[in-house]
């Protein structure tokens, strides 16, 4: 009797496990299968009708993507723009983040919320203004122009991450270094810098990702010479060649996977989204 009850109980527990793993793996498939299907689409030929997998494989679509969609150009545009945006954002954010994180600033909370405002207002609202201003300044369709537009949305991020990094610096460590007779410069290079480097790195990773994926602001400031990856994807979807678009997507997704890897290794993901609690 008890043996039977025990078996029943174990069966139930196993059921629960089965249920849990079904849920987790469905979730996994729901997130990832779109990419798998893109991958298959990009190497498949004659994949029509009710087929799970493409019947023939080919690399033609990649050749097309490289020649017709001008991938090398797009990729270099995207990376150049992201690099400029990251550099400017970081340069803006370092002093400002330091001031917000470590100095007495009047009305700090208000100031922080104001600086974060661009992340709370739909980008399309100021993108309209930026487009008009940049048009007058002849910044439209230049790498610098598109990058500057990206800074509007990257800089608040960088400031947020850096100010919380600087705030977390342990005063006592710095003091100890000073007491030990280290000069300010030495303290900075040997004590402060190693402590804040992870924070700066995560700020760079986040701003890079933001810029690399930014669509709205790019769409309002781009031109034939500054087509970036999201814009190219958008145009390709409009053109309707799904196979070529898929090939293009697979090429363009590689840097993102690298970032994903970095995020997972280097920084806590909650920092990626955090900081809005106090808004």
């Amino acid at each position: 009797m008890t043996a039977l009850a025990k078996r029943y109980w174990h069966a139930l527990i196993n059921q629960k496990k089965l249920f849990i793993y079904t849920f987790l793996w469905s979730f996994f498939l729901w997130i990832t299968s779109p990419f798998l299907i893109i991958l298959l689409k990009s190497v498949g030929r004659n994949w029509f009708g009710k087929r799970w997998l493409p019947p023939e494989l080919t690399l033609d679509w990649y050749k097309w993507a490289l020649t017709i969609a001008n991938i090398p150009q797009v990729l270099s545009n995207t990376l150049i723009i992201a690099a400029i945006a990251v550099t400017i954002s970081t340069l803006l954010a370092l002093p400002t983040g330091w001031a917000l994180g470590r100095r007495k600033v009047p009305a700090k909370e208000v100031l922080t919320s104001i600086i974060l405002l661009p992340r709370m207002i739909p980008p399309i609202a100021y993108a309209l203004g930026i487009a008009q201003i940049f048009y007058r300044l002849h910044l439209v369709d230049t790498h610098l122009g598109v990058a500057l537009a990206h800074v509007a949305i990257c800089a608040p991020y960088a400031i947020l991450v850096l100010s919380s990094t600087f705030e977390g610096l342990d005063e006592r460590v710095l003091e100890a270094a000073a007491v030990c007779g280290a000069s300010q410069l030495r303290t900075f290079f040997h004590v402060t810098l190693p402590l804040v480097l992870p924070g700066i790195l995560s700020s760079i990773i986040f701003t890079f990702t933001t810029s690399y994926n930014e669509f709205t602001l790019t769409l309002m400031t781009y031109g034939p010479h500054t087509i970036t990856l999201p814009v190219r994807t958008y145009l390709a979807v409009g053109e309707g060649y799904w196979e070529v678009t898929s090939a293009l997507s697979i090429i363009l997704i590689i840097p993102s996977l690298f970032v994903l890897f970095m995020v997972q290794r280097q920084v806590q993901p909650e920092k990626l989204v955090g900081g809005f609690k106090g808004v």
Binding site: S33, P34, F35, I37, I38, T209, Y212, N213, F215, L229, P230, T233, Y234, V237, T245, S246, S249, L252, I253, S256, L257, V259, L260, V263, L272, V273
Partner: peptide
């Protein structure tokens, strides 16, 4: 949130 949204949309 790391992979470009448009590629996700395509997939």
């Amino acid at each position: 949130i790391t992979v470009p949204g448009l590629i996700g949309a395509l997939g």
